[in-house]
């Protein structure tokens, strides 16, 4: 199973990025082979449609689940149509989130838990 985690930096010890569309990086982890891949998302450089673009990237990568903080309505629509499950991350690093995910301790999200453009606001904080 291939899982994506939104991350602030490029390694497993990095804190997760709570934003989906505007996250800095994705850690793609193949849970069978333990292979990892890093994708630069550069979500902050996009003016609009960040969530859409990011969701599209994951669809192309054949991801089955994504672990992140919050997902807006547009991104959620694509992820659901593509059958990618969304899991609510805990405030910690990528590694711990993966462990919890494998232990079945992360909650599945099926409705958007952020407004449109929310990723921009969180950047302001």
């Amino acid at each position: 199973m291939k899982v994506a985690v939104t991350a602030r930096e490029k390694d497993l010890n990095s804190a997760i990025d709570p934003r989906f569309g505007r996250c800095f990086y994705f850690m793609l982890v193949d849970l069978k082979s333990n292979e990892t891949e890093i994708i630069d998302n550069l979500g902050e450089d996009v003016s609009g449609g960040a969530g859409i673009q990011t969701a599209q990237k994951l669809v192309k990568k054949n991801i089955e689940a994504v672990i992140t903080g919050s997902v807006g309505p547009n991104a959620m629509e694509i992820l659901q149509a593509a059958g990618i499950k969304v899991y609510q991350a805990v405030e910690s690093n990528v590694k711990e989130n993966l462990t919890k995910f494998q232990a079945g301790e992360l909650n599945l999200i099926t409705t958007p838990n952020a407004d449109k453009k929310a990723g921009l606001k969180s950047w302001w904080k």
Partner: peptide
């Protein structure tokens, strides 16, 4: 997926067998 790659305004997303169109964008 060529249409979605081309769209500068991210109004399109292509998933196998489906195209999602965001009219507002």
């Amino acid at each position: 997926g060529k249409c979605a790659d081309f769209c500068q305004f991210k109004a399109l997303a292509v998933i196998p067998g489906q195209v999602i169109f965001f009219a507002g964008l």
